[in-house]
Design a protein around this nucleic acid. Structure first.
Lengths: 335, 335
DNA sequence: CTGAAAGCGCTTACAG
DNA sequence: CTGAAAGCGCTTACAG
């Protein structure tokens, strides 16, 4: 299991160049030698050292995935999409998570440098400044704020955070809701900021000024804490737009524990459409991000760049998100 | 961004040996040269080529994670645990999923070979024979059937699939259930087989012979399909033990859609305790596998082996699973 | 403290 | 078709 190409050459009685040529099918080799080499390779359980290969050839067969973290159904679905495409194209995935901060981002990039042929990066919490691009390796950014001047250097896939939240808010207003609240995601994350802006835009457009914005977060606990805050208010809003599903689920759960009926008393809308949103009772109205497909599409773009050495200007894709209406929203009861 | 150690040496006016010594802090270097080298390295944005390094030194700083697939909350939680420990110890994760079959297993192993310092493998669907160990790299197996004779070569962390399911079944019997059904996971997976045996063992011990076993699977759709089969039976069982949570959630959802009340008409118990199990309505009674902690513990074991070149005999850990009682189970109504 | 040299395991022109 | 040789970018004894 620790044999080298030299061992195989010796065993087969040929030069190492010949072994290399047989194993890489690079050019014609005499039939008998070819067979001897193949047999020797199998007998010795020879596996080429990829480090030596990568040193010579430029490619590694690896794709680096840089994520803020790896937990939750959202990232799980994203990885599933990536994994499927990677598998079909014989790439392996090198995953570096938890680069919430700019400093960690640097070390994340370093840790994959030269070990991968391309990069898929999701970093919603980095500013365009902090995100200094690695221009000598093909990169696709997903849900990441990239400065306009850098847009032609890389491919970008974003979702319509602002428009989605705006549409969700408008939907509630159409149902007759007038007193709304918004639970915001982490301020540092650009997607959270965009969603918040979408809410405010819809309220402003409808001329509704009586709303509450609570700083929450992207986790269930944040939603539970927000529930406590809301319950302490004089009167509850009739509808709450929430920055993501986990937070919305936490909110719903905590409100119901206090006797608030969902959706009769309070309607709720989340964001992401994670699998749990459908399982929950009441099931959660939410904005669906086809994150699995996004992962697949991102990797396909990346691989075609790598394979074709495609140097054309970067493309920016902005995917729509779709409102999925479920049980957690309803028309407010009169009075 | 594509500079080599030679560029840094030239820029700093020293030999490449000196650059290497400065950057690796390996031994004393004159103060002025050290500073010149450090400055040059920063100016050039120099990042050492890890392939060249790995070729010389044995270590890579990588951990290979081999999984059957990557989707769902179970794997997501596992990865979260791994990621946390990896991050704290400056290791990166190389993930190779979808090796459901033995042939893919081989190529998965090859794709990480020499790129990682250790391996964490979860392969419940492989037989001990198919799982030919890579003995020259430290490995920890999780939830994987390892032949007894190989147990001293590697570390193993398994859960008590059999005992857990048995306890769950006994719990239902104690509640007064007499007519039970079992939805089994994929036959190929050893954990699924163990769980099934646990169910049968409990029924046998209680002298109950009137039970149904349905081949289902580990996904929601399998649970839904099983619901249809159960509904077509003459009379429904009063309780169903299910091989995992997603399947149980699918079953519950489909039964409820047909007007069956959970738990009044049918009690359900799952396995895994994924986050959705708590969100679901009714929430799901299930067997909790602390999979995040398992991931952490597995990687910690592995890292200590790597760091200490620990060659002591492999340890086998069998973790208990805990029954978490929630809303989906109850005493059967009289009559 | 420091440079020249050898070598990690491969691939690929270069000459036969 | 095939072997000897150079070289990918590093690290590490080896001599100063």
């Amino acid at each position: 299991m620790a044999s080298t190409i030299r061992d195989v050459a010796r065993q087969a009685g040929v030069s190492i160049s010949t072994v290399s040529r047989v194993l890489n099918k690079t050019c014609a080799v005499a039939q008998d030698k070819r067979e001897r080499v193949e047999k020797a390779a199998v007998d010795l359980g020879y596996i080429p050292n990829p480090n030596a290969r990568s040193l010579l050839m430029k490619s590694t067969g690896g794709i680096g995935i840089l994520l803020p973290h790896v937990s939750g159904e959202f990232f799980s679905e994203f990885l599933t999409g990536l994994d499927e495409v990677a598998k079909n194209n014989d790439f392996f995935l090198l995953i570096s998570a938890s680069h919430d901060r700019a400093s960690e981002w640097q070390s994340s990039v370093q840790s994959v440098y030269k070990r991968v042929d391309g990069l898929i990066v999701m970093a919603p919490q980095l500013t365009p400044r902090q995100l200094n691009l690695v221009t000598d390796v093909p990169t696709v950014f997903v849900n990441t704020p990239v400065a306009p001047r850098d847009r032609q250097l890389v491919d970008i896939i974003n979702f319509d955070n602002l428009g989605g939240t705006r549409a969700a808010t408008e939907y509630l207003i159409e149902l007759g809701h007038r007193k709304l609240a918004y639970l915001a995601g982490p301020e540092r994350a650009f997607d959270a900021r965009e969603r918040r802006i979408g809410f405010v835009a819809a309220m402003d457009a409808a001329g509704l000024e009586d709303y509450t914005i609570l700083q929450a977060g992207y986790v269930q606990e944040a939603g539970r804490a927000a529930a406590t805050t809301l319950l302490a208010m004089e009167d509850l809003p009739t509808a709450v737009v929430v920055a993501n599903d986990y937070c919305a689920l936490g909110l719903a759960s905590e409100l119901m524990a206090s006797g608030v009926r969902i959706p009769e008393d309070v309607s709720i809308i989340g964001f992401d459409n994670v699998p749990s949103a459908a399982f929950a009772r009441p099931s959660l109205t939410t904005l669906s991000v086809p994150i699995r497909e996004v992962g697949m599409q991102a990797l396909e773009m990346l691989i075609s760049r790598i394979r074709l050495s495609d140097e054309s200007p970067g493309r920016t894709v902005n995917l729509p998100v779709e409102l999925v209406v479920r049980e957690s929203t309803s028309t407010p009861l009169a009075g």
